[in-house]
């Protein structure tokens, strides 16, 4: 993992051939790749790497196999997408660490996520909450994606196996199968699930697109949608949309099996267990037994003071529990 990162960092400023530049430019289209390939590991033994130059001036190394995937003219068939979407990415156990001391409610995570998954403004795969635990404790911002629980209450109750847990730890929703009963919404204690109550937001070309369960696009009326840990990005070796978009270094993302997480902003890669140990990492509502794969670092030594709409404390609407003794 770290070896790979170093290579990326080394390549960062190396000029690249014009041919490579064009290929990458065509293939990626967007300059979103950045240094996200740091987490692209596990493939390196088998295939050769190609260095690619992204639109925003970074170099990344992708292996040929994935380059082909990017360059494919023919998109994968629905069956193929569904099959690989259910299997997950071999050998991985994805984890996220959210550092609350760094969050200042910039909401770049929310908007990047909504853009990627064609969501309406009120549909949040990731939401940033204003939190306060008790009267005398300080308020803080808390981004909340799906916890991708290892004991997920949502997949347990699904009557048709439309929502499922993959071997790489991700909980996905198959909107080709979902019947829209919403018992998963009732079951989820983290309010992580969103429903397409009416015709979803369609972006040009969505109607012709083959449904990709790892991106959950195109969205479908009458079905559930939720945070996917950006399974589509992980497949091509990039960090999740939210993590890459954060300007403040809130998100760490990586593979528990490798014990490494990469920061979405700084691209620094460090040991997952050390990060949790040194910063008193915790999970949300562990008493519910859901075993989240999303960890939090406490909001201590905050980089930014809490402020929302000019207020530095929470009112009853945001924190009703503080007002019912």
């Amino acid at each position: 993992m770290s070896q790979d990162t170093h290579q990326n960092e080394l390549n960062e400023n190396t000029p690249n051939s014009r041919r490579d530049f064009l290929r990458v430019g065509l293939a990626l289209g967007l300059g979103a790749a950045a240094g996200g390939a740091a987490i692209l590991t596990g493939y390196k033994e088998e295939t050769a790497k190609t260095k690619m130059f992204t639109n925003d001036g970074h170099t990344v190394a992708l292996n040929e196999e994935h380059l082909n995937e990017l360059q494919q003219d023919e998109p994968l068939s629905l069956n193929e997408l569904q099959r690989r979407g259910r299997n997950g990415i071999k050998g991985k156990r994805w984890v996220m660490v959210i550092d609350l001391s760094k969050c200042r409610n910039a909401r770049q995570c929310m908007s990047a996520c909504q853009a990627a998954h064609h969501l309406k403004p009120e549909q949040h795969h990731i939401n940033v909450y204003r939190m306060q635990d008790s009267e005398n404790t300080a308020p803080y911002f808390q981004p909340k994606p799906c916890m991708h629980c290892d004991n997920p209450p949502c997949t347990k109750v699904c009557p048709v196996d439309a929502t499922f847990k993959r071997e790489d730890g991700i909980v996905l929703i198959d909107n080709e199968r979902c019947i829209g009963c919403r018992i998963c919404v009732a079951a989820c204690p983290y309010s992580a699930r969103v429903f397409n109550w009416s015709e979803p937001k369609k972006i040009d070309g969505d109607d012709e697109k083959v449904y990709d369960v790892e991106l959950n696009v195109p969205q479908k009326k009458g079905t559930i949608t939720k945070c996917l840990f950006s399974a589509d990005r992980l497949r091509i070796g990039l960090l999740p949309y939210c993590a890459s978009a954060c300007p403040n270094g809130v998100y760490w993302f990586g593979d528990e099996n490798e014990d490494a997480v990469t920061n979405g902003t700084s691209k620094e890669t460090i040991r997952f267990t050390e990060l949790l140990r040194d910063n008193a990492g915790y999970t949300l509502m562990p008493e519910l037994g859901t075993k989240p794969r999303v960890y939090y670092l406490p909001a201590k030594n905050r980089l930014f003071p809490f402020e929302f709409n000019g207020k530095t404390n929470l009112d009853e609407e945001d924190a009703p529990h503080l007002f019912h003794s």
Partner: peptide
């Protein structure tokens, strides 16, 4: 109450 009654047979 179902969002997709057309998929009842999925059950």
């Amino acid at each position: 109450d179902m969002g997709r009654p057309d998929r009842l047979h999925h059950v």
